[in-house]
Simulated assay, not measured.
Amino acid sequence: MLCTTINMVCATSITINSTNNILKNVVNNYDTIYLDDRVYNGSNNKNITISKNTTIID
């Protein structure tokens, strides 16, 4: 008898831009977040708790 286990790792990413610009809604749902050039301010873009390994690239 031969038993094999395959573990799949699925990394997800998103680009935050002028149409999708709320960090709070995506920060814990993606592994990598790419930020377009702009200023991120407002209540949905500050005081964010990151509860998983996340890479943010600007």
Rank of each mutant, 00 (worst) to 15 (best):
L2T: 04
T19Y: 12
I14R: 02
S51P: 09
N44Y: 12
T15F: 14
D37N: 06
T4N: 02
N28V: 01
I14K: 04
T54F: 01
I16F: 01
N47L: 11
S43F: 09
I48K: 04
K52S: 03
I33D: 00
T32I: 07
K52C: 02
G42H: 02
N17T: 00
N17Y: 03
N25R: 15
C10S: 15
V27W: 06
M1R: 05
N17H: 04
T5Q: 13
R38S: 10
D31E: 04
R38M: 09
S51N: 13
M8E: 09
C10Y: 14
T19W: 11
S43H: 15
V39E: 00
N17D: 04
I16T: 04
S18M: 12
N41Q: 06
I48L: 11
L35D: 03
V9C: 15
N21P: 08
N20F: 15
I6E: 00
T4A: 02
N28M: 05
N25F: 15
S13A: 10
I14E: 01
K46V: 11
I16Q: 00
T5V: 15
I57D: 06
Y30Q: 06
T12R: 08
N20W: 06
I57E: 09
N29P: 10
I56C: 00
N21S: 12
I48Y: 06
S43V: 09
N17S: 03
I6F: 00
C3R: 05
N20C: 14
N29G: 13
L2G: 06
D36A: 12
K52R: 12
N7R: 10
I33R: 01
T32S: 10
N20E: 15
V9T: 15
T15Q: 11
N7E: 09
T49A: 05
M1N: 13
Y34M: 09
T15S: 10
D36S: 12
T12H: 14
T15A: 06
I33W: 00
I14N: 01
T55S: 10
K46I: 08
S13N: 10
K24A: 08
